[in-house]
Amino acid sequence: MRWVVEQPLTWLVATLLAYRVGVWLLDRTRLSVAQPVLVAVVLLGSALLLLDVDLGIYAEGTAVLTFLLGPATVALAVPLHRQLHRLRGFALPMLVALVLGVLVSVGSAVLLVQLLGGSEELARTMAPKATTTPVSLALSAEIGGIPALSAVLTITAGILGAVAGPWVLDRLRVREPRARGVAIGGVSHGIGTARALAEDPVEGAFSGLSMGLTALLTSLLIPLVVALLL
């Protein structure tokens, strides 16, 4: 039994099965909290802890999935291309909203850590949480944060955004799919975009665009914001 759980291939299969369980649970319950990524994280995290498996073994087994994240992200351009005509008259308001969103995201993260008495290193770690995980890792290292912790915070933000984002937008009566997509993609990146794509093709397309632009704008603005606040 120990030999089986320490095989990298075991965890590749386990990851795919855990995500499939999440998809099945979401289809059956339609509960926003039953997001496949969240379900998979809970199942796999529990299994790794209970079986006392080294994370290196898990990382080795799922390396192919990590590699495929790049092509999958690029593939988000396909639904956007199909909705390209909807950018007409929307590009400028979207860019203004994303710039303001990045400033608020980075600034509020730094100020919240300072308000609660956290260290400067923690503030730098929190700052890039709204970008995709690879970008968050790179930015955190560049500005003096803790990349591994930034990755955890980024994934957590993505899950929370996917779970609560549509509900919040519904309560605020935001119905326009382009606006909903920009909001979700700018806060919860790839995980939220997957949720948006499942709900509406226009919303998903603009969420993917928002995710990419948020990563770019954060890379450009985060050194300035961090320098001003810290």
Rank of each mutant, 00 (worst) to 15 (best):
P166Q: 05
V168P: 09
D170T: 09
D170P: 01
D170V: 00
R173T: 06
R173P: 03
R175P: 02
R175Q: 12
E176H: 14
P177M: 11
R178L: 15
G181M: 03
G181P: 02
V182A: 09
A183K: 04
G185P: 12
G185N: 12
G186S: 11
G186F: 00
G186L: 02
V187Y: 00
V187W: 00
S188A: 15
S188F: 00
S188R: 00
H189Q: 15
H189F: 11
H189V: 12
G190P: 01
G190A: 15
G190Q: 08
I191E: 06
I191V: 15
G192W: 00
G192Y: 00
A194H: 09
A196S: 13
A196G: 08
L197H: 05
E199Q: 15
D200V: 06
P201A: 10
E203R: 11
E203P: 01
G204N: 10
S207E: 08
L209I: 08
L209H: 06
L209W: 09
S210Y: 03
S210D: 09
M211C: 11
M211W: 03
G212E: 08
L213A: 07
T214D: 07
T214R: 08
A215W: 08
A215R: 03
A215K: 05
L217C: 04
L217V: 14
L217G: 07
T218N: 12
L221T: 05
I222L: 14
I222Q: 02
P223Q: 03
P223D: 04
L224Q: 09
V225L: 12
V226S: 06
V226R: 02
A227Y: 04
L228S: 12
L229F: 07
L229S: 05
L229N: 02
